[in-house]
Computed example of a mutant assay.
Amino acid sequence: MKTLISKKAPDFVASAVLNGKDIVKNFTIKQFLGKKYIILFFYPKDFTFVCPTEMHAFQEKINDFKKRNTEIIAVSTDTEYSHWTWLQMSKDKGGILGITYPIVSDINKTISYNYGVLSGNIICDSSNNIIKAEGELIAYRGLFLIDKKGIIRHILINDLPLGRNINESLRMIDAIQYFEKSGEVCPANWKIGKKSIKANHDGIIDYFS
């Protein structure tokens, strides 16, 4: 599958749970375009092991994302009712009580497929009729940073056992916002306060603090 980097983020309309309790049927990322950056992250399953650690880790940093004008949105292939039930369970019982950002239901697998993070394979016959599925049709741990114009600027996809580093997501938001403001690019391991790079008209690299 071709990369989605620098492409328009695929839109969707789906059911989601908001504020840990409210089920809506027509959630879309269009509502944030022109207003906010988006961290859209996919996870494999509700009621599992690595997934709740990531969910809580994003919630713990939610004020840092808000300071950067960034909306966090989670997606898995579970139903909205599964999400809602998981949201009522306390952390010490493996639940995600206290999560306030939207959790989207991709029960039809189309969102995961369009973002290139759907695991497993769908086997079709010569007439394109589905015969069977090989492996579980669930989402890998994909993460997409979408700018205010709806363009995907950063992609990270982990295999199922590997949890993400939430601080890296914040660093990438800082980097794209710094670039948009200054026009200077961000070298390896860059963070706010470190030197950025700008090429002058002679092709010589200048460093800026």
Rank of each mutant, 00 (worst) to 15 (best):
K191H: 10
P44F: 05
T85F: 09
N167H: 09
S15W: 01
I72E: 11
V17S: 06
H201W: 15
T28A: 11
T100G: 10
K21G: 14
F144A: 05
G135V: 03
W190C: 07
N108I: 05
N114A: 04
K2T: 14
H56G: 01
L156T: 11
I131Y: 01
G163T: 11
R171M: 10
K109R: 14
Y113Q: 13
L118C: 03
K191W: 07
N167Q: 12
S127V: 02
I62P: 00
V50E: 12
I5S: 00
K191F: 09
L33I: 14
V17F: 04
I29D: 10
P102W: 07
K194L: 14
I39Q: 05
G142T: 02
E180G: 03
Y140T: 01
A199I: 15
S82L: 05
T79H: 09
G20A: 03
P187D: 12
I151H: 03
L145D: 04
N167L: 09
V13K: 13
V24D: 05
K8F: 14
H56V: 13
L137K: 08
I122E: 08
S127E: 11
V117K: 01
I197V: 15
L156F: 03
A133P: 00
C186D: 08
L40K: 12
G150I: 03
W86T: 05
A188G: 07
K67L: 13
I155G: 03
Y115H: 01
S209L: 13
G98T: 02
V13G: 02
K198D: 08
A188H: 11
Y101Q: 06
H201V: 15
I73F: 09
I103K: 03
K191T: 13
L143E: 07
N128K: 10
T53V: 07
N26Y: 09
G20C: 04
I111M: 00
E54T: 04
E184D: 13
H83W: 04
A74T: 07
M89A: 08
S182P: 04
K45Q: 11
K66R: 09
I151N: 00
Y37P: 00
A9W: 07
I152S: 06
S76E: 02
Y43F: 15
G142A: 02
I205P: 02
S112Y: 04
I166H: 05
M89E: 12
T77K: 02
H201F: 15
W86K: 00
Y140V: 00
W84G: 01
S182N: 14
A57G: 05
S169T: 11
A199S: 11
N19A: 13
I138K: 12
F179K: 01
N128I: 00
D125S: 03
K91A: 10
A139E: 01
A16C: 10
V75M: 04
I138V: 12
G183H: 11
K148M: 11
N129P: 00
Y178W: 06
E134Q: 10
R68M: 02
S169N: 13
K91Q: 12
I122G: 00
L40T: 09
N121G: 02
D202V: 06
I23H: 12
Q59P: 08
Y81M: 05
I123Y: 05
R164N: 08
V17L: 05
F49G: 07
Y81G: 04
L97I: 02
N121M: 08
S127D: 10
P44H: 06
K132V: 01
R164F: 09
I73C: 03
H83Y: 04
I151W: 02
A74P: 05
D159L: 07
E184H: 15
K149D: 14
S105A: 15
G34K: 06
I99W: 00
I176F: 15
E71M: 15
